[in-house]
Structure formats: structure tokens, C-alpha cells
């Protein structure tokens, strides 16, 4: 194994660790919404600093490899992908923090029937599965698996596009709860964003492994 190989292996390991932490942050966000557990919110906020530190460490490692090893071809694509993936992961973690933050803002636990109506759990589970897919795809360098998220993202978009209408219905029914329903709508918007960021990660993976650029192509099955 060359020195460059061991540097690249180390960056890959750093990205995998960051993926694991970000996945756990997002999953805790779901639990916090469902259980109204403010300790979980505190935990998510505390872990945010770790996520940020991990992103900075990956940035530094990528910068070192670029400066010291002048990588080319697949190695160059890998470091470029790692750099962008860590940025996407950091933004996914920001969304997890944002979702958790609403728990401190709503006056009481969001009713399960309203969460079901807006398809909160279905959307959240789907977003987490998408993350699992890209993480596994990254570890195994499996672009077939990465491509699965493009189809799954369509469900997130569908739930998101129906959410505003449902939120309006809920507000009409109980105008005094308007704040809670707007927060709920914001959570749905954030999950939609998580889906987009996960899709970005899949695109970066495909760029790194297959040298294909999928960015800005409007297709669900590239």
C-alpha cells in the first residue's frame, strides 16, 4: 500500500465515522419528535459540535492530500467526493438539529394522528433508509445501491408537496395550534432537504466510482 493509499483509506474511515454520527443525529431527531424528549434534543445539540469538528478534520485531510500527493484520476475524484460528502453530511446534521429545535418551541407533543396525516413517520423512515443506502454504497463502493436513493427521494418530494395542504387543513380545524402545525410543516420541509442532500451524496459517489456527472440532471433513475 502506498502512502497515498493509506491517506485515502484514512479519509474514507473519517467519512464513514461522520456518516454514522450524522445518521444517529437524524434518527434521534425522529425519536425526539415522537417522544417529546427534551434530553434527546440536548444530546443532538451537544453532538453538533462533534459533527462540525469531523467536517473540519476531513477538509484538512483532503487539503493535505491535494497539496502533498497531487492525486489524479480515481484518487482525485475520491478526495473531491469526500470533501463534498462531508459538507452534505454536515448540512444533514444541521437539519437534524433544526428538527430537534422545534421540540423546544412547541407547547406539547405533536398528536400522533396529525403526524400520521402528514405522513411524518413514513417520510422520516424513508429519509433514514436513503441515508443507510448511500452509507452502505460508500463503504462497498456500490453505485447500484447509491442509485436506489433517486427513486426513494421521489416519495419524499411527494409527501412534501402534499404537506402544505394538510397543514392548512389542520390550521383551519384548530387555529389556536397554528404554531405547532407550522413547526410540523417546517420539519417536513427539512426532511425533504435531507433527501436532496442524500441524493447529492449518491451523485458524488457515482462521480467518484464511475466518473459520471449526474448533478443537475432531472431524472429519478440515472
Amino acid at each position: 500500500m502506498t502512502h497515498l493509499d493509506s491517506e485515502l483509506k484514512q479519509i474514507k474511515q473519517q467519512v464513514i465515522e461522520m456518516m454514522s454520527l450524522v445518521r444517529s443525529q437524524l434518527a434521534k431527531g425522529k425519536d425526539a419528535v415522537l417522544t417529546f424528549d427534551k434530553d434527546l434534543v440536548h444530546e443532538i445539540n451537544a453532538n453538533e459540535n462533534r459533527v462540525n469538528a469531523m467536517e473540519l478534520n476531513i477538509d484538512r485531510a483532503v487539503e493535505d492530500v491535494l497539496a502533498l500527493y497531487s492525486p489524479v484520476a480515481v484518487d482525485l475524484r475520491f478526495v473531491m467526493a469526500a470533501y463534498k460528502i462531508s459538507s452534505d453530511l454536515e448540512r444533514i446534521a444541521d437539519n437534524a438539529v433544526g428538527i430537534a429545535k422545534y421540540i423546544n418551541s412547541v407547547d406539547r407533543q405533536l398528536a400522533q394522528k396529525n403526524l400520521d396525516k402528514i405522513r411524518f413517520t413514513e417520510m422520516y423512515e424513508n429519509a433514514l433508509t436513503m441515508l443507510d443506502n448511500v452509507f452502505e454504497a460508500f463503504e462497498k463502493e456500490d453505485t447500484k445501491l447509491a442509485r436506489q436513493v433517486f427513486i426513494k427521494d421521489a416519495l419524499l418530494n411527494e409527501i412534501n408537496s402534499n404537506a402544505a395542504h394538510i397543514a392548512i387543513e389542520l390550521i383551519h380545524a384548530k387555529p389556536e395550534k397554528i404554531h405547532n402545525y407550522l413547526y410540523l410543516l417546517s420539519i417536513i420541509r427539512k426532511l425533504e432537504r435531507v433527501g436532496d442532500l442524500t441524493k447529492n451524496i449518491a451523485e458524488e459517489l457515482i462521480f467518484y466510482i464511475e466518473a459520471k456527472v449526474l448533478k443537475h440532471q432531472k431524472t429519478t433513475n440515472p
Partner: peptide
Amino acid sequence: IFTNPKQEKTQNYITGR
């Protein structure tokens, strides 16, 4: 050649492997 060579031998050579 330096971003996406088509031949494996080329990639191995330019990446030092």
C-alpha cells in the same frame, strides 16, 4: 488522461500503483 483514463494500466501508472 488525468481525470478519467479509460485503460486500467493508464490509471495504475498515473496513480502510482
